[in-house]
C-alpha cells in the first residue's frame, strides 16, 4: 500500500486507519476497525461482507454522512467532514422525495446547486434516458415499481455528476428477478458513463458480477480480510466456470454468521 495516498490524482477516495465505535449505555461497540483503502478513478469497487457488519457504516463514513471515531477520509486529497456534491449516494431505502416527480428527483442536485433551467433540463433528460425511464418524467415516485424507483435513485446520484458514487446495497429491496436485471443495468449504465463506484453488497454473485475489485470485510467489527481483483471480461456470465470458481473461493473466505 502506498503511503502517500492523498497526493495521487488517480485516487478519488481514500481512507487511512478508519475506526468507528458506537457507544450506548451498555458500553461501546466497535463497528469498523482500522480500515485503510483507496479507490482509483473509474474503478468499480465492491465492499463485500456478511450479515450486518459495518458495511453501511463504512460507506457513511466514506461519503461524509457519518464521521469516523478515528482515522481520516480524503476525497481528491481533501478531508471529508460532511456530505457533499462530489460524493453521490444511492441509498438502500432509496430515500427519494415522494413529493417530486421523476424529473424533480433527478434534477434536484443541479437545481439545488443553481444551474440554469435549460442546463438541468438537459442533464436530467440525459440521465433519465440513460437509466431507461424515458416517458416517466412526470410520474410521481409512489406510482413506480421498486426497480424503477432505484433507477430514479441512480439517475439522481448520477445527474449531480459526482466524482464518486456510493451505492449501499442498492438492489437488496428488490425481488430476485429484478435484482438480476438491475445488475445488468448498472453494468450497462456504468460502461456508458464511466464513474468511480463504491458498491456495497452482501450478495456474492452480485459482487463478482459487477466488481473490478472486491474488498472482503470481516464480520463485526469490519476489517479488511482480503482483496480480489476480478478481471473476467464483461459482460460476465453467472454460470461460467471462472465465475463459479471465484465465487467459491470468496465464499470460503467469508466469515460465517447466523
Amino acid at each position: 500500500m502506498r503511503v502517500d495516498s492523498t497526493g495521487s490524482v488517480d485516487t478519488v477516495i481514500s481512507c487511512q486507519r478508519v475506526s468507528k465505535e458506537f457507544s450506548s449505555k451498555r458500553g461501546t461497540t466497535k463497528v469498523i476497525e482500522n480500515i485503510s483503502l483507496e479507490v482509483k478513478r473509474n474503478e468499480f469497487v465492491v465492499l463485500f461482507g456478511p450479515g450486518q457488519c459495518g458495511k453501511t457504516t463504512l460507506m457513511n463514513v466514506l461519503s461524509g454522512l457519518d464521521t469516523a471515531t478515528s482515522g481520516t477520509v480524503y476525497s481528491l486529497g481533501e478531508k471529508v467532514v460532511r456530505p457533499g456534491a462530489e460524493r453521490g449516494v444511492v441509498f438502500q431505502s432509496m430515500a427519494l422525495f415522494p413529493w417530486l416527480t421523476v424529473r424533480g428527483n433527478v434534477a434536484y442536485g443541479p437545481k439545488a446547486r443553481g444551474f440554469e433551467k435549460s442546463v438541468w433540463i438537459e442533464k436530467s433528460d440525459y440521465y433519465i434516458n440513460l437509466v431507461g425511464l424515458k416517458g416517466f418524467e412526470d410520474s410521481y415516485i409512489n406510482k413506480l415499481s421498486g426497480g424503477m424507483k432505484q433507477r430514479v435513485g441512480i439517475a439522481r446520484a448520477y445527474c449531480n455528476e459526482p466524482e464518486v458514487l456510493f451505492m449501499d446495497e442498492p438492489f437488496s429491496a428488490l425481488d430476485a428477478q429484478t435484482r438480476y436485471l438491475m445488475q445488468e443495468e448498472i453494468m450497462r449504465i456504468w460502461s456508458t458513463e464511466k464513474r468511480t463506484i463504491v458498491f456495497i453488497t452482501n450478495n456474492i454473485e452480485e459482487a463478482v458480477y459487477v466488481a473490478d475489485r472486491i474488498i472482503l470485510l470481516t464480520n463485526c467489527p469490519a476489517k479488511i480480510k482480503k482483496e480480489y481483483h476480478i478481471d473476467l471480461p464483461r459482460p460476465r456470465d453467472y454460470t461460467s466456470p471462472e465465475f463459479l470458481s471465484l465465487r467459491d473461493e470468496i465464499s470460503k473466505n467469508m466469515d460465517r454468521t447466523l
Binding site: 461519503s63 454522512l65 460532511r82 456530505p83 457533499g84 456534491a85 460524493r87 453521490g88 449516494v89 441509498f91 430515500a95 422525495f97 434536484y108 442536485g109 439545488a112 446547486r113 439522481r156 449531480n160
Partner: peptide, 8 residues
C-alpha cells in the same frame, strides 16, 4: 442527508 449529498 440526501439533500446535503446532492449539494443543497
Amino acid at each position: 442527508k440526501c439533500g446535503e449529498m446532492l449539494g443543497a
